[in-house]
Amino acid sequence: MTVEMALCGARVRYGPLEALHGLDLPVPAATVTLLLGRNGSGRTTALRALAGTVPLAAGRVRWRGADVTGWRAHERARRGLCFVPDRQAVHGGLTVAENLALAARGAAPDPALDAYPALAALLPRTAGTLSGGEQRMLAVCRALLAPRTDPTTGRPAVLLLDEPTQGMAPATADRTYALLAALARDGAAVVLAEQRVPATLARPGVLVHELRRGGTAFSGEAAEPRAAGE
């Protein structure tokens, strides 16, 4: 299993509070990795540290063996990283069509509309007027439309999504997890921050890191009893 990206002894502080306490987090290529934990466990901060939207107080971020700790978020995005945060993940003042056009970078938005047919009727709507579930569908489309590989090296992309199905109907959530798993099978390193293991991903081959108070409390596969919450 090839490690695509990793946090190495990562520490992140928000003022006097330390959110990550020397976290080691490998992110394999062609794999779905779940970061589990309650609010405040550090899972969102771990995604932000990988994406470069928060600086490390100590430790390193490595990508394909290179130290990219000092790279800014836009530099990582240019290299093939897509981060879908839990909040403000869409451009609220733009229409759905304009959001999709930005994500597609000149390509046709067909994959997004095939994945979420309900978006077709919403294309002229301003994204800020959509329901929570509709906004999450639109946000996930950023990952579906992002380049699958780095245009320079041809290596798989890294997709980071924070609670991607929040507010979605169960059937739509299941379809979303299936779509993200398909991206991993195509070579992408997919990392999802969740409070628990989604039923559709509770299977061998899906990796789990349960975070607690900024450190790792458990690592294994999603099918293992402790990760599945059994």
Rank of each mutant, 00 (worst) to 15 (best):
P16F: 01
L81Y: 07
P147M: 14
A193T: 03
L81K: 04
T126F: 06
V27E: 02
T172Q: 06
R148E: 14
T31Y: 02
T45H: 03
R142A: 11
V197R: 11
T45W: 02
L94M: 14
A66C: 06
R175W: 00
A188P: 10
H209I: 10
H74P: 00
Q88M: 07
G215N: 06
A73H: 10
R72I: 01
T33L: 15
G205R: 01
D86A: 14
A10R: 12
A171I: 13
A103L: 12
A199E: 09
P151L: 14
D110Y: 07
T53P: 04
A66I: 05
L34C: 09
G37L: 03
R78F: 04
A118T: 08
G42M: 07
S131R: 11
G133F: 10
G133H: 10
C141W: 07
R226W: 15
V68T: 12
A77H: 03
A139V: 15
L81M: 11
V68R: 07
H74E: 03
A188V: 08
R79I: 00
W63G: 00
A189L: 08
P111S: 04
G214Q: 09
T172E: 05
L207R: 15
A121W: 00
P55C: 04
L130S: 13
S219M: 09
A115I: 08
A228C: 13
P124D: 05
G205Q: 01
G154E: 14
R76F: 03
T53H: 03
E163S: 01
G132W: 13
S131C: 11
T153M: 12
H209A: 13
A188D: 07
P111E: 02
R72F: 01
A73F: 01
N39E: 00
G9W: 09
G132M: 14
V54F: 01
E221Y: 07
M1E: 08
A171G: 01
Q135W: 13
S41C: 03
G220A: 12
R43I: 06
P16N: 02
L20R: 14
E163W: 03
A189R: 08
A199S: 06
G70I: 08
T165E: 01
S41A: 15
E98S: 13
G9D: 05
R60F: 04
W63L: 11
R226Q: 15
A223H: 13
F218T: 12
A29G: 15
R148N: 08
L123N: 06
N39K: 01
L122G: 05
G65D: 02
A222C: 11
V54W: 02
E221R: 11
L102M: 15
V96N: 07
D24A: 06
L94F: 11
R72H: 12
D67P: 10
G187A: 10
Y177C: 00
G154K: 15
A89P: 12
E230F: 15
R62H: 08
A143L: 14
G93A: 04
R226F: 15
L145S: 10
W71T: 04
G22I: 13
P117T: 04
T95R: 13
T152D: 10
P170F: 06
R196T: 13
A118R: 06
V190I: 07
V140D: 04
